[in-house]
């Protein structure tokens, strides 16, 4: 329902336009679908590299956020919820991080996503960084959980752009399983 994003000729256009969302919930409170939706706040939108940096440079780094906060960076038109049409048949690749690493890993992931480094066509929906009490979680969401060659490619790129040691565990979870 929002107007298209204008990209002046001198800016570097991205392959996709994105929305950045923020959410925070009170620890201990059960997250129902309704309050998850209500807690999602749209921070901004961008369609060029310059517009991304203008927004990003004003934000608190993920590691400095309070516990139970999330940044959600999704392609425009895709809401960061399992129920969204683009996510329904999808899943997410999950990396659990010890405290203190989230900001750097998140930035590397975001730059790879915006720069189209995953090379999986339309498959990427977005990415989430979740700040929790004892650990932080970074995930990449894709459209088709059943497409194993794509999920393998996402996993390889994820490992490479975050410089993860080869023994790092990367869990894949379908949204369908999460909904149950």
């Amino acid at each position: 329902s929002l107007a298209p994003i204008d990209v002046p000729a001198w800016e570097h256009k991205l392959q996709y336009a994105y929305c950045l969302w923020f959410s925070r919930r009170s620890p201990g409170k059960q997250a129902s679908l309704q309050n998850y939706d209500q807690n999602l706040k749209l921070i901004g939108r961008f369609a060029s590299v310059e517009q991304f940096w203008a927004l990003y440079s004003h934000l608190v780094r993920p590691s400095d956020l309070q516990s139970h906060s999330d940044f959600h960076l999704f392609k425009i038109g895709i809401k960061p919820m399992w129920e969204d049409e683009a996510n329904q048949r999808g899943g997410k690749l999950i990396l659990r991080l010890r405290k203190g690493l989230a900001s750097r890993c998140w930035e590397n992931l975001v730059l790879a996503m915006l720069g189209e480094q995953f090379m999986v066509g339309e498959e990427i929906c977005g990415a989430v960084v979740s700040i929790r009490y004892q650990e932080d979680i970074i995930s990449v969401w894709n459209k088709t959980a059943s497409d194993s060659s794509t999920t393998a490619r996402i996993r390889d790129t994820f490992r490479r752009v975050l410089n993860l040691p080869p023994n790092t565990v990367l869990e894949y979870k379908t949204h369908n399983d999460s909904l149950k």
């Binding site: 800016e11 570097h12 256009k13 991205l14 392959q15 590299v49 310059e50 517009q51 991304f52 940096w53 203008a54 440079s57 590397n108 730059l111 790879a112 915006l114 720069g115 189209e116 480094q117 752009v161």
Partner: peptide, 21 residues
């Protein structure tokens, strides 16, 4: 059509462009 691909180093360079600040 062609996809718009950017390497990390190039994106980092644009971090300091006037509009991005």
């Amino acid at each position: 059509g062609t996809r718009i691909v950017y390497e990390r180093a190039f994106l980092m360079q644009l971090r300091n462009s006037p509009i991005a600040r």
